[in-house]
Design a protein around this nucleic acid. Structure first.
Length: 561
RNA sequence: UGGCCUAUGGUGUAAUUGGCAACACAGCUGGUUUUGGUCCAGUCGUUCUAGGUUCGAGUCCUAGUAGGCCAACCA
C-alpha cells in the first residue's frame, strides 16, 4: 500500500491541519520520552512507531528523551535497554536527550517564577498538603505558606537546593488556583527534596523537578512541535500549557500536547509496575523472558522488527479504550516469518517408525526445499534411513477419513521421501504405542518423477532419522495469563490469573543441518511452527524457543468434536 | 454528587470532513497444495439510546446511557 493512499489517523489530521494553517513543515519535531524505570513493551512500540513514523513521513527529527526526574526508580540499565530496543526496531533518533540535562535551566526558570510571585515554598507535610487539596467536588484550601515573601521563598528554595533540609521538609509549589475543577491546577508541586544519587547527575542535585514542570519545558527546550502522550495525561494539558505560558517566547515554537489511547493487549499486562512484579516475583526469568510482552521479550521469542512495525501500523492510533487481540500480533509474525524462515524438520514428540523393507545399513540424503515461498533459498540434503522418528500425534491405530495422517493399513508420504504404509505397531505394558512398523514403496521417492512418486496420498508427515538426529531443548510458550484481561477485575489481582503452563520444556529431535544454527536464527519446523535459537543455546546444547505455532485448522476441528 | 475523555462488526482501525459504512484480524464454507502451513474464492456481521437540524447524519445540536481517567513530594 502506498503511503499517499493510506488514510490518516487523528494525530496526522492534527499535523496536517497545523501545516495548512501555516505551521512551517521544517519546524516539525517529535520525541519519544520514556522514563528509564523499566523495559519497553509492545504498547511503547506503538508510541515509538507513531513518533518515529511521523519523523520519517515528514522528514522531521525525532529525539529520544529520557524522562529521568525520579532517581529513586530510574537506572542506567533501563536506559541501555531502551536504546537497544528502539534501535532494534530500526529507528534512528536525532538527539539523545535527558530531562536531567535541563535541571539547571529548569531551576533558573523556577527562580523567575518565584520572583514573579507564581511559585512558593510550602513547608507542610505531604499529608497536610493532600488534605488541603480538596476533592473533585470540593475546592482546596490555601496553604498557610502560600503568601510567603519572595525573599523568603528565594532563600528557602536556595537552601533546599543546597541540601540544608531533609527529604519532605519543603517543596516548591506553583501558585495557580486551589479552587480549580482540575485537581492538577491546585498549586501543583514543582520540586521535592530527594537525597538520592541520580544515574547521570549523581549528587549534583538534591531537589528534583516533577513531571509536569519538566515535560513541557523539555519539549520547549528541544523545540518539539508536537508532543504526544497517552490519555491519562489529558488533564495535565492545562498545566502543561500554564507552565509553557511562563517561559515561551513568540519567536520560538510552542509545543502542543495531544493525547492518544494507550494500547491494551489480551492475555497479558502492559504496565511497567506490573511487569516489574512479574520479574521480581520470579514468575518469569527477567524482563526479556520470551513470555513477556516487552520488546526484548518478543525479540528473544523470535519476533522480528518488521512484524512488530506492521502490527503497530495495522492497529493504528485512536482515543478510545481498547483491547487488542494477540492473534493480530501473531498474524504479523507468521506473515513475516513465512517469507523468511527456512523450513526444517524437527520432531517434538517422538514415536519410532521402522521401515521393515528398507535395507538395514542403507542411508540416503534426500533433497529438501528450504522455503517454498522463496526460490532463492535453495535446498539442502536430509538423511533418511530405516529407523525414523515421527510425531506421536501423527499415528493412530484406527481413525476416520478426516484423519489425514498415518493409521494401520493406511498410506502417507514422508516429506521429501517415500510413501509408506503402516503395517503394525507395538505397545508397552501400559498399552502405549512405542513403535510403528511400516513398509515403503521404493519407487515413490520424492522428485524422482516416476509414476509412483506422483501418486497422491492425503497426508504428508515430517520425520527425522533416528541415527542422524540431533537433540535440542525446545521451549514451548503459552499465554502468560489465563484471562483475557487479567488486570481489569476489581476483586482479583492480576497475579491470580497467571497461567501455570505458560512454559513447557521438552527434548526434541532435529535434522542434522540444525547443528550449526546460531543464536537468533529463525526456522519453521515444518507443520509445527516457527522457532528461533535462544541465547541460552550453546554448540553442545541447542535451545530453541517456539515463537508461534502455525495456523492449525486440524486443531480447530479437534476442539469442535 | 464535580471535571476531562471516549462510544462504528467478535477484535483493532477507516470513511474524500454532511453524500452508497470500508480495510485488516478472528470465525465459517469451499478450492489448490509433498507443511491440515502458504495461496485463492466465497460468507457472516456494525454506526450506544431517544429526540432534533437537513433533500440527506457515523459525522452537526440536545438529553440520556455506558466505559475510562483525575484527590502520588510517580511518570
Amino acid at each position: 500500500m502506498s503511503e499517499t493512499s493510506r488514510s490518516l489517523n487523528f494525530i496526522e489530521h492534527i499535523i496536517e491541519e497545523d501545516l495548512s494553517k501555516g505551521f512551517p513543515e521544517n519546524k516539525l519535531r517529535f520525541r519519544f520520552p520514556p522514563e528509564p524505570n523499566g523495559y519497553l513493551h509492545i504498547g511503547h512500540a506503538s508510541s515509538i512507531c507513531l513518533n518515529f513514523g511521523l519523523g520519517l513521513k515528514y522528514e522531521a527529527p525525532v529525539n529520544l528523551r529520557f524522562d529521568d526526574t525520579n532517581p529513586s526508580k530510574e537506572e542506567q540499565e533501563y536506559v541501555d535497554a531502551i536504546k537497544r530496543d528502539v534501535s532494534w526496531l530500526g529507528f534512528e533518533w536525532d538527539t539523545e536527550c535527558y530531562a536531567s540535562d535541563y535541571f539547571q535551566q529548569l531551576y533558573d526558570w523556577a527562580i523567575i517564577l518565584i520572583k514573579q510571585g507564581k511559585a512558593y515554598v510550602d513547608s507542610q507535610s505531604s499529608e497536610d498538603i493532600a488534605l488541603q487539596k480538596g476533592t473533585p467536588t470540593e475546592p482546596g484550601k490555601a496553604s498557610p505558606f502560600r503568601n510567603r515573601s519572595v525573599e523568603e521563598n528565594l532563600q528557602l528554595f536556595e537552601d533546599m537546593k543546597d541540601g540544608k533540609f531533609k527529604e519532605g521538609e519543603h517543596v516548591l509549589r506553583a501558585k495557580i488556583d486551589m479552587a480549580s475543577s482540575n485537581m492538577l491546577m491546585r498549586d501543583p508541586i514543582m520540586y521535592r527534596i530527594l537525597h538520592k544519587p541520580h544515574h547521570r547527575t549523581n549528587t549534583d542535585w538534591c531537589i528534583y523537578p516533577m513531571y509536569d514542570w519538566t515535560h513541557g519545558e523539555s519539549d520547549y527546550i528541544e523545540q518539539v512541535s508536537h508532543s504526544f502522550c497517552t490519555m491519562e495525561f489529558a488533564m495535565h494539558r492545562e498545566l502543561y500549557d500554564w507552565f509553557l505560558d511562563q517561559v515561551v517566547k513568540e519567536t520560538k515554537v510552542r509545543p502542543k500536547q495531544r493525547e492518544f489511547a494507550r494500547r491494551n493487549f489480551s492475555h497479558t499486562v502492559v504496565s511497567k509496575r506490573k511487569l516489574l512484579k512479574l520479574v521480581e516475583s520470579g514468575v518469569v526469568t527477567g524482563w526479556n523472558d520470551p513470555r513477556m510482552p516487552t520488546i526484548s521479550g518478543l525479540r528473544r521469542r523470535g519476533y522480528t522488527p518488521e512484524s512488530i512495525k506492521a502490527f503497530a501500523n495495522t492497529i493504528g492510533i485512536a482515543k478510545r479504550d481498547n483491547v487488542v487481540d494477540v492473534s493480530l500480533l501473531e498474524f504479523h509474525v507468521r506473515e513475516h516469518l513465512n517469507k523468511i524462515a527456512p523450513r526444517v524438520m524437527a520432531v517434538l514428540n517422538p514415536l519410532k517408525l521402522v521401515i521393515t523393507n528398507y535395507p538395514e545399513d542403507q542411508e540416503e540424503w534426500l533433497e529438501a526445499e528450504n522455503n517454498p515461498e522463496d526460490e532463492a533459498a535453495g535446498s539442502r540434503k536430509v538423511p533418511f534411513s530405516k529407523e525414523l522418528y515421527i510425531e506421536q500425534e501423527d499415528f493412530r491405530e484406527e481413525a476416520n477419513r478426516k484423519f489425514f495422517r498415518l493409521k494401520l493399513g493406511g498410506e502417507v508420504r514422508l516429506k521429501n521421501g517415500y510413501i509408506i504404509k503402516a503395517e503394525s505397531c507395538t505397545k508397552d505394558t501400559n498399552g502405549n504405542i512405542i513403535e510403528v512398523q511400516c513398509t515403503y514403496d521404493p519407487k515413490s521417492k520424492s522428485g524422482s518423477g516416476t509414476e509412483e512418486s506422483l501418486r497422491k496420498v492425503k497426508g504428508t508427515l515430517h520425520w527425522v532419522s533416528v541415527k542422524h538426529a540431533i537433540q535440542a531443548e525446545v521451549r514451548l510458550y503459552d499465554r502468560l495469563f489465563t484471562e483475557e484481561t487479567p488486570d481489569t477485575h476489581q476483586e482479583k489481582d492480576f497475579m491470580d490469573f497467571i497461567n501455570p503452563d505458560s512454559l513447557k520444556v521438552i527434548n526434541a529431535f532435529l535434522e542434522p543441518s540444525l547443528a550449526s544454527a546460531e543464536v537468533g536464527e529463525k526456522f519453521q519446523f515444518q507443520r509445527m511452527g516457527y522457532f528461533n535459537v535462544d541465547k541460552d543455546s550453546t554448540p553442545e546444547k541447542l535451545v530453541f524457543n517456539r515463537t508461534v505455532g502455525l495456523r492449525d485448522t486440524w486443531a480447530k476441528l479437534q476442539v469442535k468434536n
